[in-house]
Design a protein around this nucleic acid. Structure first.
Lengths: 359, 359
DNA sequence: CTGTTAGCGCGTTCAA
DNA sequence: TTGAACGCGCTAACAG
């Protein structure tokens, strides 16, 4: 049913080897032969069997992307944008993308990584939402398996990643609130194990301190990065007695949820309560009011980690030798950065303004 | 570096075959031998090479999912939820998931399908966002390649799918608006080639007619299913002179954008303007006000089409023979439905209410 | 019970 | 310029 090299060989009366080389465009095959073979292949509708090719080449031209998903009804525009960046870039480099969804830190997740690495299911892995003491990173490092992470880690080892400077980002937006005159600023945090959670929390805390604002444990609420989580966290925060006049959330989705909760109480966002987020997903711009946030170029980050991973797999100069190659590189060549930290950008929109009693 | 069957065989002094069978748990291998082999495999950290297994078994245990993405900065919670349903269910059945992102109706998309089918890159394909005269479906049908679609088509051929009754769903929500007293109801449509676009538009139109409401071409605006698209469409609709008192959008994301646009004009949603969506993504429930919409169980649909595809691949009773097997089926066995249409459910929330001049 | 042979489909020697 | 032989890693059929 499926047509193989052997079928073509039989058809044109040549050996499988010759057919293979003719199609691969080798120049040690007669022009006429090449023509005949090509014609036959086309007519018979030949497509190389990708699996066989993988086995022979000892590489799969496939990247793996294991998405950490919590509950069943997972729905996060952040990931769909990231996936688009990854998917498009992988395609550009003729790599397939293997996607798996697994609960973070679960046995299933561990097994998924083992299968990918030991079973040679893919040539490299993309790791996202890095965690403290991240076992995925430790495992991949130990195994010497190519990977690039979106986010840093606290492990000693050095590995390639792209990350946004979350600490500075949160400092920017917290300072923005402080500059507007807010003195009680709530914070909706993320699962504590996430690296960026720690960094953002620290940015928040340090900025409070730098502005002589009293830290208040009650103003910090854990969130799960969903809109519902932000909604519920805001309900708690807004029930406090001297209630906060501003709320900063660890991501936009929670910030949007917080806005809804406040609006349900009749509060006007940007006046009665200021809200800030993180990410700048497309929803932020078209919310009402538009959300003040810290921009993170998700799509571009997806492209970038994918490009880095492909380069890593295809054996670009290792990081150690980069200094040496700098001068000898030809025009147009660009060094493969292996550890990138992006500068955050504060996007001020209508959801933030001076506190109600300031005017 | 990677340990293969051959390595183990050498280690324990047996043939590759015996090792293979010992690990596979065949009972024609001595208990002691099995023990020795298993121990060695474990100690040496053996994992089967998945690619080799695929080649030998002539199947890949992989499903392909080609996501139709339009612009570069694609970000849609609908797809992340669908992906979660698909990914989790695929995992449950020990299938890998190959994801690709391609612009609909593009040459790249066609090539992606050809590669999957002819290159035997996967055992089956999931098709979503079905289109009029859908070339993907025609191609897969012609090739006899296993697939299941989310959405129907207008092609003559019969194929397995799950779909929600979009027509009735839109009738429900349009009737809801009419019942509230709305007489000028705007509609934000979707790209015309999409099957559900036609169905929803028809549901809208027929309901207007059934209620004796004048159809007005100006009240129907094309949308691109993004929040921005809904935002802009609503701006146009709200600039009309007798402006609509209600707007129904083809999906929730556009409805949320429409709400923002209206709110920017100072309109109060649910009073000055009613808004309705379609899908019931998690964002809808926690919007302000919460969005009236037609529920579509996205996650479950993802699971279901995946389960159907797996059954199809694993050779469940073909649709033609289902009647025959019905009686001979054993207790507990359930017929594999091949064409499922789900009944839509109207979710009434705060975004819809009587028109302003009615009270 | 175990080993030999064979083959999945392809690409890469090495001879002829 | 072409073909035969071999191997990628695994499993299945068949002997012994």
């Amino acid at each position: 049913m499926t047509v193989t090299l052997k079928d073509i060989a039989k058809q044109v009366g040549l050996s499988v080897t010759t057919v293979s080389r003719a199609l691969a465009g080798y120049d040690d095959v007669a022009e006429g032969t090449r023509q005949r073979v090509r014609a036959a292949a086309k007519e018979m509708g030949y497509y190389p069997n990708i699996t066989a090719r993988h086995l022979q080449k000892q590489r799969t031209d496939t990247l793996a992307f294991v998405i950490p998903t919590h509950g069943p009804r997972f729905s996060d525009p952040f990931f769909s944008e990231l996936l688009a960046g990854i998917g498009n870039e992988a395609g550009r480099h003729h790599f397939d993308l293997l996607v798996s969804t697994q609960p973070p830190d679960s046995e299933d997740e561990r097994e998924t990584y083992r299968r990918i690495v030991h079973g040679r299911r893919a040539d490299g892995v993309l790791v996202v939402r890095t965690r403290q003491n991240d076992e995925r990173i430790r495992f991949l490092s130990e195994q010497g398996f190519p990977f690039v992470a979106f986010g840093r880690s606290d492990l000693g080892s050095s590995f390639p990643y792209v990350d946004e400077d979350s600490y500075t980002g949160t400092r920017l937006i917290t300072q923005h609130m402080a500059d507007l005159g807010h003195r009680r600023i709530g914070f909706v945090s993320a699962p504590a194990g996430l690296m960026f959670c720690q960094l953002r929390l620290a940015g928040y805390r340090d900025t409070l301190q730098a502005n002589g604002l009293e830290p208040d444990r009650a103003l910090i609420i854990g969130g799960d990065l969903t809109q519902r989580g932000g909604f519920e966290a805001a309900q708690t925060l807004l029930a406090l007695d001297p209630r906060p006049t501003a709320i900063i959330a660890c991501n936009d989705l929670m910030a949007l949820g917080a806005m809804s909760a406040a609006q349900n109480l009749g509060l006007i966002i940007g006046q009665d309560l200021s809200v800030g987020g993180f990410d700048d997903i497309p929803l932020a711009e078209h919310a009402h009011p538009p959300l003040t946030t810290v921009r993170q170029p998700i799509y571009e980050i997806g492209q970038r980690i994918t490009r880095m991973l492909v380069q890593l797999i295809q054996g670009q100069p290792a990081p150690e030798t980069r200094q040496d190659t700098r001068r000898s590189r030809k025009a147009g060549e660009v060094a493969a950065e292996t550890q990138v930290i992006l500068t955050p950008q504060l996007i001020i929109r209508g959801s933030s303004g001076p506190p109600p009693d300031s005017g």
